[in-house]
Structures are given as C-alpha cells and as structure tokens.
Simulated scan of single mutants.
Amino acid sequence: MLLALDKVTKSYAGADGPVPVLSGIDLALDAGETLALTGESGSGKSTLLHMIGGLDTPEAGTIRLAGQDVTALDDRGRAALRRGTVGLIFQQFNLIPSLDVAANIAFQARLAGRHDPARADRLADALGLRSQLRKYPEQLSGGQQQRVAIARTLAAAPALVLADEPTGNLDEATAARVLDQMLALVSETGAALLMVTHSAALAARMGRRAHLSRGRLA
C-alpha cells in the first residue's frame, strides 16, 4: 500500500469556535491506482491533498506514504518527501520566472535526481510545449503555464501525483491530453494518482472515485 490515511481530522478556527472540515477520513491507495476525488467547493478536498503532501498537518489521525508517517515528519522531512516522493499539481503554477520553459520542466526532476531528457521531451511534445521551450513564464498564457507546471511534476516521475483541478485552465481537448499523460506516467512508473476534479468526464476515466461531503468520504 502506497498511501494510507487513518481517521484524519481537521478543523479551522471560526468566529463561534472550531469549524470541522475533515472528520475521521480513512483512505487507502496502492501503487498504480488512480482515484478521482469529487465534492462541493469548500468540502475540504484541497485541505486533504495539502495534508497528504505535507503542506498542512491534521489535528488527529495518521497519514502514511511510501512507508513514512507523514504526520511525524518535521519541516525538513516533509520537504524531502515532496522533493522525492510526491508530485504536486495545483492551480497556482509556481513556475520560476527566471527559468525558461525547458528549465522549469526539468527543475523538479533535477532536485529529485531523476532528470530524464527523453521523458521531458516526450512531455513537452505531448502537452504542446515544443515551440515554447525557450520562452519564460511571463511570455505564456495561463493555460500554457498550467501545462508547464504539469510537465514539471510528471517529469520527476514521483511515486504519488496529487493534482488539484489540474485542468481547470485548459480546454476540453487539452484537458484530455493532460490526463492521458498522467495515466501514462502511472502505467510507466507504477505511480499512483489522486486527482481532485469537477469534471465528470475526467473522473470517469479514473480507476476509482470518492466523494467528499460534510467532512466524510463516500
């Protein structure tokens, strides 16, 4: 089992006291599995991904990833986990302005010690970025920047890809190509994919689906 959540709980401070967001979440994901996570806005989907990726911590419960207890790691340990094990794709592109597209795509893979020029080239071609490789982020549209961010994550071949509405800025055809590349990575490397999406069409292509409502998974 690659990922295991056991009774994960999270709440935020509100004007009238704590506001529950996640209430005893249990979730398991094996290597090679794909899971679509759906739910209303504000249901806690992004919070859940942030905690799995070590960007936030639960109030209770445990998160184990690739044999490590994520909830027991310090800041350095969580950073190492994101560098080598988890790939994060969020709607904020977080590209490096001083690097061109080619260098941005290679950045995470170089940090992880897994830079593969052939894989980076395949991703650039598949995501329609071949003609953009020498441009800088400020010269790209929002959709192009999103594709660069996705390519950067996939180029590092992480064990687990966490994707939060990764195709939100893309048209339907491009979104389908992006998912093709994510599923190809899972098939090629044995990675797992956990994707938050509002798209019924994209969710239907995933191996499993789970719905988050009122702090619980169904």
Rank of each mutant, 00 (worst) to 15 (best):
D6Q: 15
D6M: 10
D6G: 11
D6W: 07
K7P: 06
K7F: 07
V8H: 07
V8R: 05
T9Y: 03
K10L: 13
K10M: 06
K10A: 08
K10N: 02
K10F: 11
S11F: 03
S11C: 06
S11I: 01
Y12E: 06
Y12S: 06
Y12C: 05
Y12P: 07
A13D: 14
A13H: 09
A13W: 00
A13Q: 14
G14Y: 00
G14W: 00
G14I: 03
G14H: 02
G14V: 01
A15F: 07
A15Q: 15
A15T: 15
A15I: 13
A15R: 15
A15W: 08
D16A: 14
D16I: 00
D16R: 15
G17V: 08
G17E: 03
G17W: 10
P18H: 03
P18L: 06
P18V: 03
V19N: 00
V19L: 13
P20T: 03
P20E: 03
P20L: 08
V21A: 06
V21T: 06
V21D: 02
V21R: 01
L22R: 10
L22Q: 10
L22E: 11
S23K: 15
S23F: 00
S23A: 14
S23W: 01
S23Y: 00
S23D: 13
S23H: 07
G24M: 10
G24Y: 09
G24D: 12
G24N: 10
G24Q: 11
I25V: 15
I25C: 13
I25Q: 12
I25G: 11
I25H: 12
I25N: 11
D26F: 04
D26V: 04
D26Y: 02
D26L: 05
D26M: 02
L27W: 08
L27I: 05
L27H: 02
L27D: 03
L27K: 01
A28V: 13
A28G: 13
A28K: 13
A28F: 01
L29N: 07
L29D: 07
L29Y: 08
D30E: 13
D30V: 00
D30F: 01
D30P: 02
D30W: 00
A31P: 09
A31M: 06
A31S: 15
A31T: 12
A31E: 13
A31V: 06
G32K: 11
G32A: 05
E33I: 05
E33D: 13
E33T: 06
E33F: 03
T34F: 14
L35Y: 05
L35G: 05
A36P: 04
L37W: 10
L37N: 12
T38E: 04
T38F: 01
T38K: 02
G39A: 00
G39Q: 00
G39M: 01
E40S: 14
S41Q: 09
S41R: 09
S41I: 10
S41Y: 10
S41A: 12
G42P: 05
G42H: 00
G42D: 01
G42Q: 01
S43M: 09
S43C: 11
G44T: 11
K45R: 13
K45P: 10
K45Y: 11
K45L: 12
S46N: 09
S46Y: 05
T47H: 09
T47A: 09
L48Y: 02
L48D: 04
L48R: 07
L48S: 07
L48N: 06
L48I: 04
L48G: 10
L48C: 05
L48Q: 04
